[in-house]
Simulated scan of single mutants.
Amino acid sequence: MSSEFAKEAPFYRLKQRVRHALGPWGVFLQGFLKNPVMVGSIVPSSRFTINRVLSAVDWDNTKLFVEYGPGVGTFCQPVLDRLSRDGTLLVIDLNPDFIDYLQKTITDSRFIAVNGSAADVEEIIRAHGHEKADYIISGLPFSTLPPGVGPAIASATYRVLRKGGAFLVYQFTPRAGDFMAQFFKRIDKGLEWINVPPCFLFWGWKDED
Rank of each mutant, 00 (worst) to 15 (best):
K63Q: 09
P151G: 03
R13T: 15
M180G: 04
Q77Y: 09
G164Y: 00
E4I: 15
G71T: 08
A133R: 02
S109L: 09
R17V: 15
L94K: 02
D86L: 09
A127R: 07
I125W: 02
H128V: 14
I124M: 02
C199R: 02
F184W: 01
V39E: 02
I187E: 04
Q77R: 07
L168W: 00
P36S: 10
A127I: 14
F98T: 11
T105A: 04
R186N: 13
L90C: 08
F98Y: 04
I187H: 00
D209G: 11
F183A: 11
I124T: 01
M38I: 10
Y101N: 06
F142L: 05
T105K: 04
G40W: 01
L54C: 13
F48N: 12
W59D: 10
D134G: 14
L102G: 05
Q77C: 11
K185H: 12
V79E: 01
V72G: 02
F28I: 13
V149W: 00
Q182D: 11
V53N: 03
H20P: 12
V53R: 04
T173S: 13
G40Y: 00
L83V: 13
K163L: 08
F142P: 05
E4N: 11
H128R: 06
F48E: 09
A127T: 10
D93Q: 01
G148W: 03
Q182C: 14
L161A: 09
P174G: 12
P36F: 00
V114Y: 02
F142E: 03
L89R: 03
Q16M: 08
C76V: 14
I187F: 01
R126M: 13
I106T: 15
I137F: 05
P151N: 03
N195S: 11
S55R: 06
P147G: 04
C199G: 06
I112R: 00
Y158F: 12
G69K: 01
T144F: 03
I194C: 14
V53Q: 03
A156G: 08
L191I: 13
R47A: 15
K34R: 07
K104L: 09
K185V: 15
P10R: 00
E8K: 12
S45Y: 04
L89M: 05
Y170K: 06
G150V: 08
Y135C: 13
V114G: 05
D108Y: 05
F111T: 14
V43I: 14
K34A: 15
R13D: 11
G190K: 08
G204N: 01
I92Y: 06
I106F: 10
P96V: 08
